[in-house]
Amino acid sequence: MKKPKIVVIGGGTGIPVILNSLRRENVELTAIVTVADDGGSSGKLRSAIDIVPPGDLRNVLIAMSDMPRFYEKIFQYRFNEADGPLSGHPLGNLIIAGVSEMRGSTYNAIQMLTQFFHTDGKIYPASEKALTLHAVFKDGFDIEGESHIAEHKGLIDHVYVEETATGKVPVASRNVVQSIFDADTIVLGPGSLFTSILPSLVIPEIGEALRKTQAKVIYVCNIMTQRGETEHFSDSDHVRVLHEHLKMKFIDTVLINGEPVPKEYMNSNKFDEYLVQVTHDFKGLKKEGVRIITNNFLELRNGGAFHNGKAVCEEILRINEYRNK
Rank of each mutant, 00 (worst) to 15 (best):
I223T: 06
D37H: 11
A36W: 04
A63Q: 06
V239W: 11
P199A: 04
P260A: 13
I293A: 06
N267G: 06
L94H: 04
M102W: 13
H134P: 00
V171Y: 01
V171D: 03
L61W: 12
F117C: 04
I316Q: 07
E146G: 01
Q214C: 07
S200N: 04
I110T: 11
P90Y: 09
L188R: 00
T279K: 11
S234R: 11
P204V: 12
L210W: 01
R291K: 05
I9N: 07
V159P: 08
A172V: 04
L57M: 09
L298W: 01
P68R: 10
N308W: 05
H245E: 07
K249D: 10
Y274Q: 15
T164A: 06
R24Y: 08
M266K: 12
I15S: 03
I15T: 01
D272H: 14
H307K: 09
Y274R: 11
L285M: 02
E151F: 04
E229Y: 13
E205F: 05
N20L: 05
I218N: 00
T253A: 01
P170D: 10
P199F: 00
I123V: 12
V169P: 05
V52M: 13
F116G: 10
H243P: 14
E273K: 13
A305T: 13
V312G: 08
N59S: 11
L198G: 09
I180N: 01
I74Y: 03
F306K: 14
T166A: 14
D50S: 08
L198P: 12
A126D: 05
V169M: 14
N80I: 05
I15R: 01
L188Q: 00
I203H: 03
D281A: 03
I149M: 05
K2F: 02
E315M: 13
V220A: 00
D281T: 03
K286G: 01
V17E: 14
N20D: 15
R174K: 14
Q277C: 07
V276C: 08
S65P: 00
V278I: 10
E72K: 13
N324I: 07
H148A: 08
M112Y: 15
L22E: 08
V161I: 09
M224F: 07
G11W: 04
E81G: 15
E229Q: 14
Q178E: 13
D184F: 01
Q214P: 00
L131F: 11
G10N: 09
S47N: 14
N59F: 10
V27L: 13
I62A: 11
I186F: 07
N267K: 03
F271S: 02
V176R: 05
H152D: 06
H280F: 12
E101T: 03
G140K: 14
T230Y: 11
N302M: 08
V220F: 00
K168P: 01
N324Q: 09
R46W: 08
T213S: 11
T34S: 13
I95L: 15
R46M: 08
K122S: 10
F250M: 04
K44G: 09
A135E: 09
